[in-house]
Write a protein that binds this DNA or RNA. Structure first.
Lengths: 250, 250
DNA sequence: TCCGCCGTTTCGCTCTGGCGAACAGCCCAC
DNA sequence: GTGGGCTGTTCGCCAGAGCGAAACGGCGGA
């Protein structure tokens, strides 16, 4: 590992990040002050990014361009898991009526790689590509449970255990206890740990690749945690998980 | 328009493009020869891109990272059209059983921003984020029909009218005639113009934003072009289009 | 064991990315 | 109208960074 890096590329990416941080839309001066970089610098970067479609301008405002979506599509597709898993996740959404998710780990955080809405699903902004901490969601904890203790410690070191709600697990020991339970049980729960009022039941996927992944169903506590419904969801997750794992090894 | 540009950023993006061109996965030397750039240069760029999650390495192979998917999500979301249109497109897929698409124009090409599969849908690789020429697909022609003639000429100048199949329209005058028909009719057809055996019926969306868009249903010629089914699809597209346009202006 | 391929590192030279300041266009207040 | 303050845009300079060529090291196949 060396510190050979291309500084200009980093600034360009910071420009993209800046646009996101400024609610997806920004002007040149706005970005310059937000990132503490000279206006003229931002100008040049936006110019090149626009030329490549990574950014698009509406008048004098810049937004993230659809070109990024193209690259995103490749990122999805070239993980074999996606192809076999996404129809199952969609079916999960149809059968449960709730929100179904597929998450991959990357750089110690969780990325929603596919999300499907059932007919009763709440309109929470869980959208494709979103990144989330692993410790504060059920689906994230399911992924963490598939990692060796060392790796989990590494992740905690880099990202910490920030609190999302009053129920978020922020204590390291408590987290390790929880992960042990998940490993035994094969299922992870999330009781309002990432969003108040929302619960989530998740199942890790054991994959032949280096990519760690999990699937989950999310919904309002009242619906998802109802004893009968909970059993039904566990069954659905298990079936889907088995199908995916079977197709992957097959 | 000036030629102020950040060369290093362009190389970084070319690296991403290179990975895609090499079927989504590449090594350093491979990329260096493919892009005619020094190995050490590629090395540095990949290092930087990896640190930012734009690229991910499995052993000594590099792939597009999921970080791009995150940016892609923002690109989708910050077009108001997406939020109101994507549930309708999903419903189109469910009702027709075929493939339903939502396309936006960007930089003179068409981007599939949302795609949904019905239960009989063929597994063609029309995936989210894919870019296509506008002249050689039904949904693309629907978008072209919403542009003034000048803009269409510009697009032809930059991208040409490359042939995809023997049925692709490659003559400029013929294309303009076709676009006139589409404007009158409100519906665009694609008879094996982009893929042999496949047909597509599309409807332009008139939006209050600068983004030009269209929706379509795609399937095998035998199914989609059946007279009865064709009428059904036209009705479905019209209903969905009206709902979307109503929600956008409302 | 050697050869060849690949990723990694080193090392200069050149060029360019980044800055600050000046310029230009727009809109609003007055 | 007209001036001030906000944009985006351009100019020119200089340290430093991007890039290439070549050398290094590690792995695997012949």
């Amino acid at each position: 590992m060396s510190d050979d890096r291309v500084h200009a590329t980093e600034t360009s990416i910071r420009v993209l990040e800046g646009i996101v941080e400024l609610d997806g839309e920004a002007g040149i001066t706005e970005l310059a002050t937000h990132l503490s970089v000279a206006k003229s610098t931002i100008f040049k970067h936006l110019n090149t990014l626009e030329r490549k479609g990574m950014v698009v301008r509406h008048g004098d405002r810049y937004r993230i361009g659809l070109r990024t979506l193209e690259f995103g599509g490749y990122a999805q597709r070239y993980e074999g898991i996606y192809d076999t898993a996404h129809p199952e996740v969609r079916q999960l959404a149809d059968e449960s009526g709730e929100l179904a998710n597929l998450m991959f780990e990357e750089l110690g955080k969780g990325v929603y790689v596919y999300t499907a809405e059932g007919d009763k699903a709440v309109d929470i902004n869980t959208q494709t590509g979103r990144r989330d901490f692993l410790h504060s969601t059920g689906i994230g904890k399911a992924i963490l449970a598939t990692f060796p203790k060392e790796r989990v410690k590494e992740i905690i070191e880099t990202h910490g255990l920030p609190r999302a709600t009053e129920h978020t697990i922020t204590d390291e020991d408590e987290l390790f206890d929880e992960l042990a339970t998940i490993r035994e049980d094969g299922i992870a729960y999330d009781h309002e740990e990432s969003t108040l009022g929302m619960a989530c039941i998740a199942r890790p996927l054991s994959t032949p690749t280096e990519r760690h992944a999990a699937i989950s169903i999310t919904g309002p506590v009242s619906r998802v945690m109802d004893e009968e419904k909970e059993q039904e969801i566990r069954t659905l997750l298990d079936r889907a998980g088995n199908v995916i794992e079977l197709n992957l090894t097959g």
